[in-house]
Nucleic acid binder design. Sequence first.
DNA 1: CTAGGGTTAG
Length: 562
Amino acid sequence: MCKVGVLNTPPLARKIITRVDLYRYLERSSSSLQHLNQIHAQMLVNGFNKETNDNSLTTKFITTLFSSGVPHLASLVFNQLESPNVFLWTCMIRGFSYSGGFKESILFYDRMRRQGVRPSNFSFPFALKSCAVVEALFEGEEIHADALRLGFVSDVFIQTALLDMYMKCSRIEAAEKVFDEMGERNVVSWTAIISGYCRFGLLEQAQELFEEMPTKNAVTWNVMIDGLARCGALEAARQLFDKMPVRNIVSWTTMICGYSRKGDMANARLLFDQMPEREVVAWTSLISGYAQNGEPGQAIKVFEMMLAAGMKPDGVTMLGVISAVSQLGSLHLCAWIEDCISRCGFEADVRILNAVINMYVQCGCIGRALRAFEKITEKDIVSYNSMITGCATHGYTNGALSVFSQMIKMEVKPNGITFAGLLTACAHGGLVEEGRRYFRRMFDLGHVKITAKHYACMVDLLGRAGHLEEAYEVVLGMPIKPEASTWGALLGACRMHGNLSLAEVAAQRLFEMEPENPGNYTILANMYMERRMWDAAMGVRQLMKGNQIYKTAGTSWVEVTD
DNA sequence: CTAGGGTTAG
């Protein structure tokens, strides 16, 4: 908290401070936290925060706290105010919306209403934006009701925010109703509804309005181009791109992403090279494009170009680069990435540190993955899950189990992915009793979403250990529809332990569910042949042929070197 | 010096 104790810090404290001075200090682009402390101290001492009819300085101060990335301090300052006016309330709603605290933003709107403060026309758009992002339809509807009650409903800004909120909450008809009832529409309203249609793949409706609307701006064109590209009409998107009057960075980036999503990195690169100016998002699009399309080496090359061009990568860029390095499996590059992360100041970004765990897991370096894991001070569920799954898939059974106990000790709630990892670990390590315990615990917890994958793990675990009947019972007792992988696990276990009668049952299901998979036929046919049951084996081969299935030749990903 | 709004890309 801002302590008045910092008051004796010169130079601010030396002379008499006026409101003007404080305004000027706040308008400086980068205020350090200490600097903000001093300003707050001055405000308290001079009583600038007490004036009930003019809170503008406090508003400005709180806004600065938000834009300095310390929303919790903004809350603290706000909570000390005696009777914040609607400006201050709006400032909180906006601040949280700006800094990603959408739930808090909605909560502040709610608090304001319960305090009996009447919102202003400025309160609505921010609150509605927050509802749109977290898809809080119920709260959005409440706010809509407020707007109706308080007579704000013909405000274009509010109407546009409403229609966008409804679209983002998948209420197309409600959005259309707002749009239809608008007395006055501008480019933004038209663009908002077109954007909504595009997100739902309703291209015809989008295009119709796009033609119909009186004036378009660059955003409108970009929305339409992106909509076409995402719906697979990349050619049409390109035509619009070529036709649009004034292209901006987003237009270029949208097209680059369109090509990249389609796997056409040649055209993506061509546009990237042609675009007049590039910033982080464009660079990142190209990098992730290469990474996602199996060209990790190119991704690294472009990243190096980006650094050489003096561009500063952000978190999303790093995620793309880390994905590329994960595919390359080079420990040398891993070390380089870790260096980049600390030099660019991403050491506190959990998402990135989690990606680093996965990177080392994919490189097969569980030791380093663990080291990266342990370095994370604020581990989240993804950190734990990555480590558990990583250990499990590499056969470090005890590692997986011990990370799980750490997770429980830290009171992080395990989810379905956690248990899939644990069951995989137990299957790998042959820990039948532990596996059964985790399986039961998963149900007992009550909140875990149990999928066919969990059952497949359990069947695999029991089956490998030779408990074939129990495995079969697990499948029969499934409350959800078994997937091919479930029966596949059972069939594999039957082959391993030579249980022909159960193998026939599993194979029968698999022939129905995935008749095109040659592996199932082969396993059963081989089991018959081992027992010299030639006719039965031939029968399976005939069935396979009848289903037009041919075994594909074995391939290896191991490179041949000389 | 005197507070703030709605649509687009990774």
